[in-house]
Structures are given as C-alpha cells and as structure tokens.
Amino acid sequence: MIQQSSTSAAQAGGVAAPPPTGTVRLTINGQQHTLQIAPWTTLLDALREYVHLTGTKKGCDHGQCGACTVLVNGKRINSCLSLAVMHEDHDITTIEGLGSQENLHPLQQAFIDHDAFQCGYCTPGQICSAQGLINEGRAHTEEEIKEHMSGNLCRCGAYAGILNAVKEVVDSKSSESRR
C-alpha cells in the first residue's frame, strides 16, 4: 500500500506539490519588486505573471520573434530566454517604463505617425528593440536599421512603417547630438 503524504501526491497521481520558490529582487522601470518565484521562471513570465506588466509580449517563447524584448541595463535582450533569477542586480526597462498614455515616448509617437503596426502584438518588443538600437548608436541608414532590427518579426508585415518610424527617431537623435 502506498503511503500518501503531501510530498508524494504527484507520485500517487494527484496534484503535484507547489514548486519550490525563492526570493528574487528585481528593479523594473525604477521600482523594486520582491517576488517569490521558482528558479525556472523566465524574466518574461516574471514580468507578466508576477509583476503584471503585460506590455511585454510572449510570442514564440524561443527567442525567434523578439516580441518579449526588454532593456536590461540599457541593452535589449529576449526576456523569454533568460531566467528572472539571473537579473537581480540589473536595471530592467519594459515598454511601460518608456512612455505613458499621457506622455508617449518619441518611438511610440513615431509608430502611430507612421502606421507602424496593425495588430500591435509585436509593437512593445519593436519599440524596446528600437530603443536598444538607439542606445547602441551604430545604425543610421535604412539598411543598417533593417539589419539591426532583424531580431523583431512582424507577422502583419508592417515593416515599411516600422522602418520609417525608427528612422525618424534615429535621425532626430543624431540631429540633437549635432546641436
């Protein structure tokens, strides 16, 4: 006879015991968050399911589409291919930290002005990626922007608008720096 206990529930065919959790401290958009999460929680899932910042999207969940792009210490990464626990000392910025409804980020305004989306699902990732591109400061021409934005897919095919939107903000930044 099988001795049942709370820890052997899974083996007995019942509901598995809750996963072991630990404390993970994340700094997101300038705010400290203390989360109780399992070590296998990706940064993407931590943002969406635990901090409820759902602007960051889950597309492929395999680092192929770029919808989950966020900025870590100003650099763009795929949050789906990173564990939350790996980012305790980092400064994380999501789309919610770039602009607000009252005060749009220049990239958000440019995406609206250039009709740079249809469904909008890839847009937060596109905008965070574009901010990362601007921070890097290496892409200026249309060809360079295309290459440096290739990690973000848009299934609606709004690439022409996305390119124009990013180019406009890249151009305005470089004219600012010349002033």
């Binding site: 770029g66 763009r76 291919l81």
Partner: peptide, 9 residues
Amino acid sequence: GASPQLRNM
C-alpha cells in the same frame, strides 16, 4: 549570427 538581442545575451 543571431540577432542583436541574442548577441547581447
């Protein structure tokens, strides 16, 4: 290789 995001990681 890869994308800017992946090369950053």
